[in-house]
Design a protein around this nucleic acid. Structure first.
Lengths: 332, 332
DNA sequence: CAGTCTACCGACAACGATGTCATAGATATC
DNA sequence: GATATCTATGACATCGTTGTCGGTAGACTG
């Protein structure tokens, strides 16, 4: 149905190649011919077919794929926004795909994107990876982070938020340990001793880093009182709320709660703990007065896109890791 | 660099066509040949080139484009999430593009997507359209909603949230007038008389519908006291906050505020008006106790995708309009 | 046993664009 | 005036894949 180049050429009374030259601003086309071709293209409503163009020129498509969790989660959508903004400055389009936090689907998506010859792949690996050892469901074949052979090597791949295991690749991380440490230090400085830690799936590397950062700060302060209040693998807001309620109902309840991501924080908030610090900033955190470990999620996406873009532009150096800093925003 | 079909064929010792047949599960390939081809493909790590495939078969790509505002806005990302979920069930991928609320950029994006031969286009038109008549900056050439000739006719186009003007096209809308009316009625029933209306850009049709719905309810109640408290073209949270503060500082301040979208509501919230109702639900609205006119933004995306899918599947009937209902969620 | 059918396979063209090369005419060079 | 250079153009091959058609070998029909 769409108009082809040869139709334009026919109408302008020139060869296909000449029409191509005229439309591509190439040299060696007389002004009159060029004008005739442009007029013909305009009249017919010609639109270049990029599929054919990209097939012929071989450069691959002008698409970049982003695989992450559901965009309804503000973390992923902020990342996507940052990625898109950076890509567009280079004329690239973003294909977003939801891995559903499932490895199988993630693999299928990667395959589909590669078949479309995307120029680069940005991946926030699904949380469906098992912990490397001693995990509850200890599946020896799987690792806590994605393994190398599952990802392509012929195009740039950048990992976001979670580092790949046993695979040297570009990646952008948040300073998880540092952020969690600052949260712990803040609560300790405020005089808390019994601090509950409500964390998401420990099989994701970022969660482990946050837990470890928190634990390290507590160790450094010689505090072990918090340990009975550790709750992990809390994956949604409802469970977080219930978990905090249960904690508060203990004979000797914690005096503060640290929740390790925005979903858990908003859930915990509903249980109205006496003090709450959350990892990830969120809308209205200022209004409800929750202290948070903030970081720029859009920057995470932007930096990932930049890493990919340098590779697309030919950089072949060693893998780089960009760490997005966190900052503690104290609210009352 | 990637492996081509002819390389696979060569390795399997068959013609390219036979290799193609084997990989496509076509009939008339002997079991042994098929096995040899599959083995060869596997060994070489063959991956079909969809660009070539789609070029040859002509069906266009398996991509659907979604043009909207920044994904960092939860409204757009919820929509995108709904769209993606529906598309994936049909094996289609989603390309998301940010129009930056700018018509020019929106046109460029449409062009870029059409060149990629997307199968359908979903558009949340940029708010950069001027009101049709008597608008403050009355630009006669532009309309309050997108005009027909700017959009393609050879592929399905579905409009989201804002109806196209003078163009019969599929679209999915929110019951803006009805939702605003229910908000007004709720506030009136609660005994409020002086109700402020804080609205976004009046040049967008959805905002006008909300204002009109509100005004209609007030008229029906014989209330004109609200009119001095009408504030429009408030476009961001900070301005909303300031606007509400100013309203509250009036000699005879309003006793309630109705904000016509989530951004304005969260802004207004910071000014702590005595009573607040917002259009669009938002995270933590329950915690901060804001009554809202809620609607399913994910459903908006899903329905839009469905409309497009039926067209892709051959439906050629008249344009349809789906209206997403709203519901008042009363919170205290 | 000639004829029809069917399974299997390959040569070739085509999708819509661009790269390569050849060529005709106009200019420039000596 | 012969040769080299440059401009402007078109014929053709090509990217990777699939549709069309034709051919061959064996099985089946009557």
């Amino acid at each position: 149905m769409p108009v082809t180049l040869s139709q334009v050429a026919a109408r302008a009374g020139v060869s296909v190649k000449t029409a191509s030259r005229a439309l591509n601003q190439e040299a060696y086309v007389s002004a009159t011919t060029r004008a005739r071709v442009l007029a013909a293209a305009d009249e017919l409503g010609y639109r270049r077919n990029r599929l054919a163009h990209e097939l012929r020129t071989g450069g691959g498509s002008a698409l970049v794929g982003l695989i992450s969790g559901d965009l309804a989660n503000p973390f992923y959508s902020a990342v996507a926004s940052g990625v898109e903004r950076e890509l567009r400055r280079h004329g690239l389009l973003l294909v977003t795909a939801n891995n559903d936090e499932d490895r199988e689907r993630e693999r299928d998506l990667i395959e589909a994107l590669l078949e479309r010859r995307v120029r680069a792949l940005l991946v926030v690996p699904s949380s469906g990876y098992r912990a490397p050892s001693g995990a509850p469901d200890g599946d020896a074949r799987t690792a806590g982070t994605p393994a190398g052979q599952e990802y392509p090597t012929d195009i740039p791949v950048v990992f976001l938020d979670r580092p790949p295991e046993g695979l040297a690749a570009d990646c952008v991380l948040i300073d998880n340990a540092g952020g969690a440490r600052s949260a712990a230090e803040h609560l300790l400085a405020a005089g808390h001793h019994r601090i509950a830690l409500v964390a998401d799936l420990v099989r994701t590397a970022s969660q482990r880093a946050r837990i470890e950062g928190f634990a390290a700060a507590m160790r450094a302060a010689g505090n072990t009182e918090w340990e009975p209040y550790l709750r992990t693998d809390v994956h949604d807001a409802v469970t977080a709320e219930r978990t905090v309620r249960e904690l508060m109902a203990l004979p000797s309840p914690p005096t503060a709660v640290f929740a390790t991501n925005n979903r858990l924080t908003t859930g915990a908030l509903r249980a109205r703990p006496p003090a709450l610090v959350g990892f990830d900033d969120f809308e209205l955190a200022d209004v409800v007065g929750v202290t948070v470990v903030a970081h720029d999620m859009t920057a995470l996406g932007r930096e990932a896109a930049r890493l990919a873009l340098t590779r697309i532009d030919g950089y072949t150096g060693p893998p780089r890791t960009v760490v997005i800093p966190t900052s503690l925003i104290v609210r009352t």
